[in-house]
Amino acid sequence: MSSKQLNMVQAINSTLDLLMAENDSIILLGEDIGKDGGVFRVTEGLQAKFGSERVMDTPLVELGIVGMAIGMALSGLRPVPEIQFQDFIYTAFDQLVNQAAKMRYRSGGEYHVPMVLRTPYGGGIRGGLYHSQSGEAYFAHTAGLTVLSPSNPYDAKGLLISAMKYNDPVMFLEPKRLYRSIKSEVPDEKYSIPIGKASMVHEGNDMTFITYGSMVPTVMNTVTKHSIDADVIDLRTIMPYDGETILNSVKKTGKAIIVHEAPRTLGMGAEISAFLSERAVEYLSAPILRVCGPDIPFPYRLEEYYLPNEERILKAINRIQEFR
């Protein structure tokens, strides 16, 4: 089986290319995704190959992009809307929450919306308030949506292939900070990573890290650099998260630290912490800790103070190690 060293942009681009070539139901639509190839170049070259009817440069209207994609999906197409920055999605929130997410339910299963919404999210590129947000909790809180976030090029391809076979709306959140910063060996062929299954990216006995997206490399670097004997769980699927893997690990280690970029209050860390306290309290030897973005808007000049980093993760490790 042949493979290539690819970054995440290349992995997503080549996966879309592969899938579009074999299925003419797939339509990409979004702002500047055609001729320009998207502001992050994720769709580079696809319009030249598949035409402007399948790679649509739309007017600047997020609710129109999402709404139109919903109608396409209802008519049997497989739309892949792109929202240029996740920060711009809020005008389309009603379409997502009240239309896409509820369609199967409210029609008694007669209609469904097979749509994969791709959008770059998170900070680390000096984007300030409106090019850095991590809004995954909004989507995870909505019954009917499925929320994915890959942390490396290999997973990006496998998750995207699964999402494109899925018959309900998927939020495919791409950590933009990782678009070009890491490469992995990506097979040329199709393979899929199941939705709802986390990945154990490091194994150990002292504590469990639960993280996803852009924070996976940050946690991994800290754990390897300081030889921490920890399980590191990359969720990959934010909703429905893999409760079983989390629970089994925490039962083994007795300690849990959840790391994400999104604001702490009512973020995924809050959910996972509640999940663990409901069913693993007798296994816990220390408080469940969260290392997250603070509950403030995302700052521009001083973004390094916002993003969880090695220092803050180490602080949490030190605190948790005081409990034996």
């Binding site: 709404g67 139109m68 396409m72 379409q95």
Partner: peptide, 15 residues
């Protein structure tokens, strides 16, 4: 909210 999806259905017809 039914109007933007209606454009998607019409686009499928055109496509």
């Amino acid at each position: 909210a039914n109007l933007p999806p209606a454009t998607g259905a019409a686009y499928e017809i055109k496509y």
